[in-house]
Design a protein around this nucleic acid. Structure first.
Lengths: 344, 344
DNA sequence: CTGTTAGCGCTTTCAA
DNA sequence: TTGAAAGCGCTAACAG
């Protein structure tokens, strides 16, 4: 058993309450008394029991971060930003990686409630998350949703401007002369998939291109999902000349598939996607992307959460962060430019 | 205040003890009683208070993961592996991102002790971590060190074979004809830096190349560190024809610097490093690396930790994981090959 | 400024 | 198989 407040109090010759006051540095303690206590703490190597503290005070100083996939650079950065802000405000962050699994998400949600975390940042696996979250309403634990929204839930939200982003990405492809543009999308029960689909259609319409359902496919939003989907869509009799991948990892899967099939990007196939891949883009600036400020998603979400925790916020807040088009190789823009130069 | 065990007990018409037994599914409860209790739990939406539980039982079901930088793909994967194993064994993982800051590491360590986590995985910021860890010894909390070792600490350890890996990387450069090989290393108070330096020297000696201290430079092991160091070293009158970067992020910084200076890799400068960058290598297989099984670092470390927690392990264990040389573009091997073809 | 008294919500221990 | 009593280590609320 570790050293307790009792032992510290005995050694310092004061009551436990006085020790407690020193710990929470209430200034209602005489300097000399405080010194005695502090010496006792140091000598004993006393570390207050956080559980007892939390149980008694109803404050744990812990928030939970629930994300679908830590290995996705977007979420990695989001987590980093959130953890940082938490740290600087005296909070710890528990990381919960759901692996896009609804059951795991549900279990984590229960668990975090049990641990009495003071707040929750969640990038929901899908709209089905609604039920789990609803079930937690009675616990009155502040929640902020990030990246993905869930209809019918009144929580604060930090998301990207997915529709606009998608539209601009597709417009870009169209401006480069592509007419047969496939869209490898995620499941439609994820808000980002729905919004990006809207943007895709919007861009086609504006260019008076018809929407062909065989060019739009839904898959898991990870590398393998992108790989499988690309394999399928690139076998079409009328092969697309460009692909819009719903996110970075799906795009990685597309690159992999194209390589295997022997299609050169961007020569034989143009490719664009949502979300950058940090270090990759420096090593070789290849993917043309709609980059989102991932870290800001995390820092802002955590700030909103802290506002809730401290009771500063009342109304529901909805932050939308713009994305930035970064044109590199994979869309073929530079290729096109060079071609023009060569054939004057 | 949330629903408590008391209310569940009242509603089910049993004592709190019986509810507790159902919760911990002790089988010493009559089926009918159990049903009554379970119904009450469901109706009330009861979630047991983990703090109270932990305080009372001395078990929290939480382990801490302390890493220097979550945004580094190596640690991201390590964390992912560890979190996964924790999950499957009924444990939650708290992520602590120290940002390579000793103070932050110290605070986290104290904090985790306070929260009574049942175990600790730590990739230490440096040898200075020893003092913090020593201070926690009296708490008898199981610790497993990963990636980096700290001398004088008797904890379980999972690390890579840094010396061999570094040696092979440099040997590879030498085999390609490079003689003026710079090494951008990390601080020597990190074990991996020391071991990789040994490997570097070993390779030079074996090839009877002299060690030139001006070609070895220490820096922070992140992108900016690599960038700054490369800027400096590439200005040398006798410019190196190859660089061995101590890790992936440093290599990214080197690429950045080389780009700025106008040096083409691998044409004017060969580059190799430790640790792969997952997605980047698929999008464009550029960096020649010594890839470490990052996820295994995490899974194995967590398994060792679970052994400790359950008291299964007694002796100190030391796991060394081999790295794999992956030859891509940046070292110039393929360039060399082509050159040979072109000049028969 | 300091101490006393009661819990926080659960589990352990011992009886029944 | 079930329950009563006694804490786990701390802090809130009130006295003094």
């Amino acid at each position: 058993m570790a050293v307790t407040i009792r032992e510290v109090a005995d050694r310092a010759g004061v009551s436990t309450m006085t020790v407690s006051r020193v710990l929470n540095d209430s200034n209602r303690v005489q300097p000399e008394t405080r010194q005695k206590v502090e010496r006792a703490i140091a000598e004993l190597g006393y570390v207050p029991n956080g559980l007892a503290r939390g149980l008694s005070s109803q404050k744990t100083g812990v928030v939970a971060l629930i994300v679908p996939d830590v290995a996705n650079p977007f979420f990695t950065k989001l987590v980093r930003g959130a953890e940082n802000v938490a740290w600087h405000n005296g909070f710890r962050a528990i990381l919960c990686n759901t692996e896009n699994d609804l059951n795991r998400e549900k279990a984590y949600l229960q668990d975090m409630t049990a641990q009495r975390v003071e707040g929750l940042i969640i990038a929901p696996t899908s709209d089905q998350t609604r039920q789990h979250l609803k079930a937690l309403e009675q616990h009155n634990i502040p929640v902020v949703m990030v990246d993905r929204s869930v209809e019918g839930l009144e929580y604060d939200l930090v998301e990207g401007d997915n529709q606009t982003g998608a539209r601009r990405l597709v417009e870009h492809l169209i401006s480069l002369g592509h007419r047969n543009i496939a869209f490898i999308n995620g499941p439609l029960n994820i808000s980002t998939s729905r919004d990006r689909l809207k943007g895709y259609r919007q861009a086609l319409e504006a260019a008076q291109l018809s929407y062909k359902s065989e060019l739009v496919i839904q898959t898991k939003v990870d590398q393998n999902g992108g790989y499988q989907a690309a394999k399928k869509i690139l076998k079409l009799k009328e092969r697309p000349d460009a692909i819009f991948a719903v996110n970075n990892l799906v795009a990685v899967g597309v690159v992999q598939a194209a390589e295997e099939i022997g299609l050169a990007i961007p020569k034989n196939l143009a490719l664009v996607c949502f979300d950058d891949i940090e270090y990759a883009s420096i090593i070789c600036p290849f993917l043309t992307v709609m980059a989102q400020p991932a870290e800001s998603f995390g820092t802002i979400a955590l700030q909103l959460l802290l506002d809730r925790i401290s009771g500063r916020a009342i109304e529901q807040r909805h932050v939308t962060l713009a994305a930035e088009l970064i044109i590199r190789e994979s869309c073929g823009a530079k290729l096109a430019k060079n071609r023009r130069k060569e054939q004057p």
